[in-house]
Each structure stands twice: as C-alpha cells, then as structure tokens.
C-alpha cells in the first residue's frame, strides 16, 4: 500500500519524467490511431460495401492479422527501417516516426476488422437505400460511414487502446530512449527492471485508468449505436 501511495504522490507531485512519458505516449498513440484509421476505416468500409470474390478471405486475413504479436510487427518494421533496410535513409528507427509507423501497422488490421464488423451490424436498410438510389461506391462509403460514425468511433477507441497498451513495437522501434521515444509501457518495463516499483506502478495506474476509460467509452458508444 505504501508503494501505491508513493505512486500517487509521484503522479500528483508532477514528476516531470513521468508526465513527459504520459504526454509522449498520448502523442504517439493518437498519431498512430489517426494514420491507422486513415487507411483502416476506408478499408473496412470497402470490405463491407464490395461483393468481390475473395472478400471472405480478406476478412479472415484481417482477423488473423489482429493476432500477430506486437514484437513480430516490430521485427518486420525494424527490417524495413533499419540502416540496411529499404527505408533506412528515412531515419525512422529510434525516433518517434518509427514508433508511430509500427503502431499504425499494428492497429490497421484491428481498425479495419472492427469497422467492417461494426458496419455489418448497422441497419441493413441504410445500405439498401443507398443501393436503390443508385449511389456510387464513393458516395455509399461516405454516407455509410456517416451513418455508422459511432461504429467508426468505437473502432478508433479500440485501436487506440491496443496501441497505448502495447510494448513490443515501442520497445523495438523506439528503443525506450529517455525523453525521446520512451512510452508508458516501455518505461514500466524499465522501472520494474530497476526495482523502482513506485514509478512503474504510477505509470501502470495511468495505463489502467486509460484502458478503463476507453472501454467504458466504447461501451457507451455501442449502446448508443
């Protein structure tokens, strides 16, 4: 219990390193969610709107991708952005850009699949109405995303939650560099290793609260949708 009290004191006392780490984590996670959604939401909508051969395979593939361990994604992106990799000249490794790239890829299949399954639960009359009015696919996509905006919001929340809680990508691509790429989860790993459990606990509390808030929000969203 003393550890918990000390953890709270660190948070409330405005420990600069801890708050920097929280800020950076939010920055990385929000950016990654944004880029991931930019690609994932239209992909999910396309899967929903199109009736092409192999759509089932594509959906199954996306679902399978959700289960890829974060370190595998990290490893894959590492080989791309390492000095000897094809994107080495972009200087992304051990920089925020690398973390954001990796986390975007991590959340992409999740957001795609969530958007797809969410839209499927939407009242089918919306899509039928768009079809009967002869709307183009582009029009249908924008209209269906507008009607399914809560579904999209939920997909974003879940993607964000996945990103904020992951450690593999942030560690491998960011390198856990103090005040540059250190995120809450990598800092927890470090502080626990150093035996500084109060610091780890302080960040753990923040991650836990965020996870709770995100889950509550996404459940509220579902109820409204």
């Amino acid at each position: 219990m003393t550890a918990l009290r000390e953890a709270m004191a660190l948070l409330l006392g405005g420990d600069a390193d801890i708050w920097w780490t929280i800020g950076a984590t939010l920055r990385f996670s929000l950016s990654a969610t944004f880029f991931s959604a930019l690609l994932g939401v239209p992909s999910g909508a396309l899967l929903f709107l199109s009736r092409f051969r192999g759509r089932r395979i594509a959906v199954a593939f996306m679902n399978a991708c959700m289960a890829i361990p974060t370190v595998v994604i990290g490893l894959f992106v590492y080989s791309l952005i390492s000095r000897s990799g094809p994107l080495g000249s972009l200087n992304l490794l051990y920089n925020p850009g690398g973390v954001i790239l990796g986390q975007s890829l991590l959340a992409f299949p999740l957001i795609t699949a969530m958007a797809y399954t969410g839209l499927q639960k939407l009242d089918p009359r919306y899509h039928e109405t768009l079809l009967t009015l002869g709307a183009s696919r582009r029009r249908r996509m924008s209209a269906i995303l507008r009607e399914g905006r809560l579904v999209v919001l939920q997909a974003l929340l879940i993607g964000f939650g996945r990103i904020i809680g992951e450690v593999g990508v942030a560690m491998m691509l960011g390198g856990n560099i103090h005040r540059q790429t250190r995120t809450m989860t990598t800092a927890i790993a470090l502080d626990a290793g150093k035996g500084e459990f109060e610091r780890a606990l302080a960040l753990g509390l923040v991650v836990l609260s965020l996870a709770l808030i995100i889950n509550l929000l996404s459940q509220l969203v579902v109820r409204d949708a």
Binding site: D123, R125, Y126, E128, T129, T132, L133, G134, A143, R146, E147
Partner: peptide, 19 residues
C-alpha cells in the same frame, strides 16, 4: 441495366432517412 437503375427505386416498409 445500371444506367437505368435510378429510374427504379425500392422503398422499405419503414424507410430509413439519413442523418
């Protein structure tokens, strides 16, 4: 008959309107 499509519209028993 896609070009003709907009000439024919189906209306649901309880139609949905867009936001």
């Amino acid at each position: 008959a896609r070009a003709l499509r907009r000439r024919s519209v189906f209306l649901h028993q309880q139609p949905v309107l867009f936001t």
